[in-house]
């Protein structure tokens, strides 16, 4: 239903502004890749590209989850801490054979779901702001993790974890395939299912959603559970990629996942966003990180560029036209 005060009908043709608005990120990515290709001949080599994508996969998983939470006007600062906690949990089995991998995944998902439920419960039922609830969760998980490891984690991992995270089947990285499966599955949930519609309704206007028979609390809690589970799985894949457990696996992923989602046009005010655009944001972030290295700039410059990008992207989408 069109709002009554729509000033004028939208023109059929694609104006330049609309193209820029809708495909801005794709154009940006293309430009970045062109710059990277010119700046360094190694960039477009398949080996480098696959490498970039392999590093991107765990972040992509986290971003899928972060998107769900931001869509219901939330924010999850505990994802990175959860990733590290899951990584420590994975070593707690002291498993040396691959038989333990399903068990590790199961334990990780259960732990993540509990953490997500607590986050969601605090936000939805106890009216704690998402910022504070997930911040507190971040510190609590950090404390429990360090207390368990005594500051020095052990690194006994089944060899198959490494294969999952950096191995390939027919030349395609396994973790990239996993990301694709996750993205499609959660993409269907979000953009094609009833639950997805409810999520957008709650994010746009919780009160209206409630009046339409949607229970906002349940939807919000579910979004936090999805976010944490995605982060937990991302943590396992990152762990397999890194190979050794530290108490800080995934450090910085809370900021990066928010940057990527915002760059992908997920509105922090809730109710607007797309999983695949958010993943495009991951690609842009990764290309930029790679570009900084290829150009021989100090790695700290990534931080500066990331900061500029998140502010710029948020400002760009605020002035969106469509």
């Amino acid at each position: 239903m069109a709002p009554l005060d729509t000033p004028m009908p939208r023109s059929r043709g694609l104006s330049l502004a609309t193209v820029f608005e809708r495909y801005g990120l794709v154009i940006f990515l293309a430009v970045l890749m062109a710059v990277a290709a010119v700046a360094s001949p190694t960039f477009l080599r398949p080996a480098n590209l696959v490498n970039v994508l392999t590093i991107a996969a765990p972040l992509g998983m986290v971003v899928i989850g972060q998107t769900f939470v931001i869509l219901v006007r939330g924010l999850d600062l505990s994802v990175a801490s959860l990733m590290a906690t899951v990584a420590v949990l994975a070593t707690a089995f002291k498993a040396t054979t691959n038989d333990a991998i399903p068990l590790i995944f199961l334990a990780a998902i259960v732990l993540s779901a509990v953490v997500g439920f607590l986050n969601g419960w605090l936000v939805a039922r106890r009216n704690v702001s998402p910022f504070l609830a997930t911040l507190a969760m971040m510190i609590i998980l950090q404390g429990i993790r360090f207390a368990y490891t005594g500051g020095a984690p052990i690194s006994t991992l089944p060899p198959g974890m490494g294969f999952l995270a950096s191995g390939r089947i027919l030349g395609v990285p396994v973790n990239l395939m996993t990301l694709a499966v996750l993205a499609i599955a959660f993409g269907i949930v979000l953009h094609r299912s009833r639950l997805g519609r409810e999520i957008f309704m709650v994010g746009t206007n919780p009160k209206a959603a409630f009046l339409n028979g949607v229970a906002p609390d349940r939807v919000i809690i579910l979004c936090y559970v999805i976010c944490s589970v995605c982060a937990g799985i991302g943590g396992l894949f990152l762990l397999g990629y890194v190979g050794t457990v530290s108490n800080w696996v995934g450090q910085g992923y809370e900021l990066d996942s928010i940057v990527a989602a915002v760059m992908g046009g997920v509105a922090l005010t809730g109710g607007r966003g797309n999983i695949f655009a958010a993943l495009l944001g991951v690609a842009v972030l990764m290309v930029i990180n790679n570009l900084v290295l290829l150009l021989g700039f100090p790695i700290e410059m990534q931080l500066i560029i990331k900061g500029i990008i998140i502010i710029g992207a948020a400002a760009f989408y605020r002035t969106r036209l469509v």
């Binding site: 990331k306 900061g307 502010i311």
Partner: peptide, 26 residues
Amino acid sequence: LTVVLRVHSLIVTLGMSSIIFGATLM
């Protein structure tokens, strides 16, 4: 920045924090 760009303060200061941290480390 929050006033001119009308971006949420969380994003602006998070971004600024990253910029300042990166510059300091450089």
